[in-house]
Computed example of a mutant assay.
Amino acid sequence: MPSHADWFVYILQCADGTLYTGIARDLARRLRQHNGELAGGPRYTRGRRPVRLLWQETASDRAAAQQREARIKRLPRPAKLALVGG
């Protein structure tokens, strides 16, 4: 079970089929923001709701999460889908 100090890197699928990659400390709260249940969601997903979580992984700290997020964002869509499916 992840500790409260963990960070999460995640990939969402938006209603229009696009993928969104992000990081969060409280993933459940962040998903509620993405879906408009709580204030504070990113502009990208605001017009592409509902979103659903496809993939997540933990990172030991914010820096590690941001580095992993950046690497994933550079991947082409087929590689992201392979990551999600694997």
Score class of each variant (00 low, 15 high):
residue 2 P to D: 08
residue 3 S to G: 15
residue 3 S to A: 11
residue 3 S to Q: 08
residue 5 A to P: 00
residue 5 A to T: 08
residue 5 A to R: 07
residue 6 D to V: 14
residue 6 D to I: 08
residue 7 W to E: 04
residue 7 W to V: 01
residue 7 W to Q: 09
residue 9 V to N: 05
residue 10 Y to I: 09
residue 10 Y to F: 13
residue 11 I to M: 14
residue 12 L to S: 03
residue 12 L to G: 04
residue 12 L to I: 10
residue 12 L to Y: 07
residue 15 A to F: 04
residue 15 A to G: 03
residue 15 A to H: 08
residue 15 A to E: 13
residue 15 A to R: 10
residue 16 D to E: 06
residue 17 G to D: 09
residue 18 T to M: 07
residue 18 T to E: 13
residue 19 L to P: 01
residue 20 Y to D: 12
residue 20 Y to E: 11
residue 20 Y to I: 10
residue 21 T to G: 05
residue 23 I to G: 02
residue 23 I to M: 05
residue 23 I to W: 04
residue 24 A to Y: 05
residue 25 R to G: 11
residue 26 D to M: 10
residue 26 D to S: 12
residue 26 D to P: 01
residue 26 D to E: 12
residue 27 L to A: 14
residue 27 L to S: 13
residue 27 L to R: 11
residue 28 A to V: 14
residue 29 R to D: 07
residue 29 R to F: 00
residue 29 R to C: 01
residue 30 R to T: 11
residue 30 R to K: 14
residue 30 R to C: 02
residue 31 L to M: 15
residue 32 R to T: 05
residue 33 Q to T: 03
residue 33 Q to Y: 02
residue 34 H to F: 05
residue 34 H to G: 05
residue 35 N to P: 06
residue 36 G to M: 09
residue 36 G to N: 07
residue 37 E to D: 14
residue 39 A to S: 07
residue 41 G to P: 03
residue 41 G to M: 03
residue 41 G to K: 01
residue 42 P to E: 09
residue 43 R to E: 13
residue 43 R to S: 13
residue 44 Y to R: 14
residue 44 Y to Q: 15
residue 44 Y to A: 14
residue 45 T to D: 01
residue 47 G to H: 12
residue 47 G to F: 14
residue 47 G to E: 14
residue 48 R to T: 05
residue 49 R to P: 00
residue 49 R to V: 00
residue 51 V to F: 04
residue 51 V to N: 01
residue 52 R to D: 05
residue 53 L to W: 12
residue 53 L to H: 08
residue 54 L to P: 03
residue 55 W to Y: 15
residue 55 W to S: 05
residue 55 W to Q: 02
residue 55 W to A: 11
residue 56 Q to H: 12
residue 57 E to P: 00
residue 59 A to C: 08
residue 59 A to H: 01
residue 60 S to T: 06
residue 61 D to F: 01
residue 61 D to M: 04
residue 62 R to L: 14
residue 63 A to P: 03
residue 63 A to H: 14
residue 64 A to D: 11
residue 64 A to I: 07
residue 67 Q to H: 07
residue 68 R to Y: 10
residue 69 E to T: 11
residue 70 A to P: 00
residue 70 A to Y: 06
residue 70 A to N: 08
residue 71 R to K: 12
residue 71 R to H: 10
residue 72 I to R: 02
residue 73 K to Y: 00
residue 74 R to M: 04
residue 74 R to F: 00
residue 76 P to L: 11
residue 77 R to Q: 12
residue 77 R to W: 07
residue 79 A to Q: 15
residue 79 A to N: 10
residue 80 K to R: 15
residue 81 L to D: 08
residue 82 A to C: 05
residue 82 A to E: 14
residue 82 A to S: 12
residue 82 A to I: 09
residue 82 A to Y: 08
residue 83 L to C: 03
residue 84 V to E: 12
residue 84 V to N: 06
residue 84 V to M: 13
